[in-house]
């Protein structure tokens, strides 16, 4: 009985963690700049590959994961300055440019690194509840997802950067007039978004087989979470992830993975019909 109950929670936590971790970076960039980073999956992939490479070079796994995150963060900062900045006023074009980039990176990795890369075994082993065995690492992922939400809360509500970022989000022109350097805020936000994508990749690196196109297995979930969530991570991504994880877990349990994936998408399309601005818009209206 306890085992079954925990199994349900475990399934939910697994899906929830995946949705939050894969969507947080995308949501921050969208919320701040109105830009959808189509190369999001490639930042995840970057996190995976750097983590795996550092791990094989002899670093302990947590340190390797920190490397994966840091590299994605730095690349994000540079990229923002080079290709995103000229397109601040053209969000659709920044979507296209990042898509071109995604194609270049995926196929370029295929050319340079080849189609496979040695993976990492899942650490920490398993634990038992009732009659079932569960992977301990999946619980680490769940904790990390909660940690990411806490980090975002802290970053945007408790730091100087957060105050400036929210000012820019509200009114870029006014914030600039008050001495906030908009470009720096955008560059950092993009970097943080990319870094969180890298962090997601770093965390999932020990659980997947490493192929250059692996980014695309993250983007559908991250896209739909952001679409349903809207522009805020805390008021949008988090509740959207809860709702979608419940839907997905239920469908998976009763009808299997394939129906789970398709059902999730149908649910998303139904939800956007009734919640035009996603959970963010709905919650903001309710509390106004």
């Amino acid at each position: 009985m306890l085992g079954n109950l925990f199994a349900g929670f475990y399934q939910f936590a697994d899906v929830f963690a995946f949705l939050v971790l894969s969507a947080a970076g995308l949501a921050i960039i969208f919320g701040m700049m109105g830009v959808i980073n189509m190369a999001h999956g490639e930042f995840v992939m970057c996190g995976v590959y750097v983590t795996a490479a550092s791990y094989h070079a002899g670093l302990p796994l947590p340190l390797a994961q920190a490397c994966g995150t840091a590299v994605a963060f730095l690349i994000g900062m540079v990229l923002e300055a080079v290709v995103i900045r000229p397109l601040y006023t053209r969000p659709l074009d920044s979507l296209l440019v990042t898509w071109g980039l995604s194609l270049v990176v995926t196929q370029g990795t295929l050319v340079l690194v080849g189609s496979t890369f040695p993976g990492i075994g899942t650490p920490l082993g398993g634990f038992r509840v009732g009659d079932y065995t569960f992977s301990a690492y999946r619980m680490v992922l769940f904790a990390a997802a909660i940690g990411v939400l806490g980090f975002v809360w802290f970053l945007f509500l408790r730091t100087r950067f957060g105050i400036q970022a929210r000012a820019v989000m509200q009114n870029p022109g006014m914030a600039q007039a008050l001495g906030v350097r908009r470009n720096r805020v955008y560059a950092l936000s993009f970097g943080v978004g990319a870094g969180l994508a890298g962090f997601c990749g770093a965390l999932y690196a020990p659980t997947m087989s490493l192929i250059p196109t692996m980014g695309s297995s993250f983007i559908v979930e991250s896209f739909v979470t952001v679409v349903v969530g809207g522009s805020s991570v805390l008021l949008g991504t988090a509740p959207a992830a809860v709702a979608l994880a419940v839907i997905r877990t239920g469908l998976n349990a009763w009808y299997g993975q394939i129906i789970g994936q398709i059902g999730l998408l149908v649910a998303v399309i139904l939800i956007i019909r009734v919640l035009p601005d996603g959970f963010t818009g709905w919650l903001t209206r309710r509390t106004a």
Partner: peptide, 12 residues
């Protein structure tokens, strides 16, 4: 749904 969201929903 319009603008960038139109793109990512259709892609999803």
């Amino acid at each position: 749904i319009n603008g960038v969201f139109f793109g990512i929903v259709t892609l999803s």
